[in-house]
């Protein structure tokens, strides 16, 4: 039982990251119908930005200001920086292709992903970089329930991802921007005729989605320590599938899918074998995508002619 709960907590931590990245996928897919392969790499860039903010404040062992402020600065810098990067990518790479055949932006997205990965490789090299989180958030800051140890960072990741998702949900449902986003997602041309600034809305969507990915990157660095230039690619794939599992375009769906995949992965690692985790998860995801491409919470969409 102890092991079960321990794995559950690990799964929720990983799942929170999947869910945050999945949200960005889902939003971008909603407004542009574009599978943005570069989204996972934005998460990676976020992790790197967080790392350099941490170094700028003196490194993990000798922080110049109190720890909460450093973490806040890391989140803000990564969110803002990656958000801006996402907007730039949309302007430069995807906007000219908005009316092109569907295959063109997909290939471009693949190129953007590859360019980002290798730019980071050029700038920072292939070696792993270490957040060394335990130096400033020691493992002793954990909560013990029975035999289960929950590290403070894990709690932070889970709580923060749920809070961010709830905030995003409110934004989409209640604010003017959210209404515009939903309108553009439903029918771009009609939205444009009704006076919605479609370009602005799409840019804002990219900013929000990318910022979430950047924040998720910092969380991944804090929770798992090691960051490297390829960390985003596979995670991006899984996160997209999380969005599909929950039902693409649905915010609670992305959250549900992310947590489900994270928990499934943790249980496979814990109870079956860590060697085959990826293989089994890929298998499950392929089967799911084929059997129920509309997802758990999604609705069947009729193809328009």
């Amino acid at each position: 039982m102890t092991k079960f709960i321990q794995e559950l907590v690990n799964g929720l931590t990983q799942g929170g990251l999947y869910a945050l990245v999945a949200l960005g996928y889902s939003m971008v897919y909603g407004v542009l119908k574009l599978l943005n392969f570069a989204h996972g790499d934005l998460y990676m860039v976020g992790a790197f930005i967080g790392y350099f903010v941490l170094q700028w404040f003196g490194g993990p062992t000798a922080l110049a200001i109190p720890v909460p402020f450093v973490i806040l600065a890391m989140f803000l810098a990564a969110g803002g920086g990656v958000g801006a990067l996402g907007v730039a990518i949309e302007r430069f790479a995807y906007r000219p292709l908005r009316d092109a055949p569907r295959i063109a932006p997909l290939i471009t997205a693949l190129g953007v992903s590859f360019l980002l990965e290798n730019t980071v490789l050029l700038l920072f090299g292939a070696s792993y970089r270490d957040y060394n989180t335990s130096a400033f958030i020691p493992y002793s800051t954990e909560i013990r329930i029975g035999g289960v140890n929950i590290w403070l960072v894990q709690i932070m990741v889970i709580v923060l991802s749920v809070v961010l998702m709830f905030g995003l949900q409110q934004l989409v449902v209640r604010t003017q921007l959210g209404r515009q986003m939903r309108a553009v997602a439903t029918d771009r041309e009609a939205a444009e005729m009704l006076g919605i600034n479609v370009d602005y809305t799409i840019s804002a969507t990219f900013f929000l989605g990318s910022a979430l990915a950047g924040i998720a990157g910092v969380m991944a660095g804090l929770a798992f320590n090691e960051i490297y230039q390829l960390m985003g690619f596979i995670l991006g794939l899984k996160a997209f599938t999380a969005a599909v599992v929950g039902g693409i375009g649905s915010i609670p769906g992305a959250m549900l899918g992310g947590f489900l995949i994270g928990i499934a992965e943790a249980f496979i690692t814990g109870y079956i074998s860590s060697t085959f985790t990826n293989l089994i998860v890929f298998g499950i995801l392929i089967v799911f995508m084929i059997l129920r491409p509309t997802g758990l919470l999604g609705r069947v969409q009729l193809q328009k002619v």
Partner: peptide, 16 residues
């Protein structure tokens, strides 16, 4: 599956 879904399923297949 069309377009993006096919792309992601086949990409999983390649990674697998």
């Amino acid at each position: 599956l069309i377009g993006d879904y096919l792309a992601i399923v086949t990409l999983f297949f390649g990674e697998a």
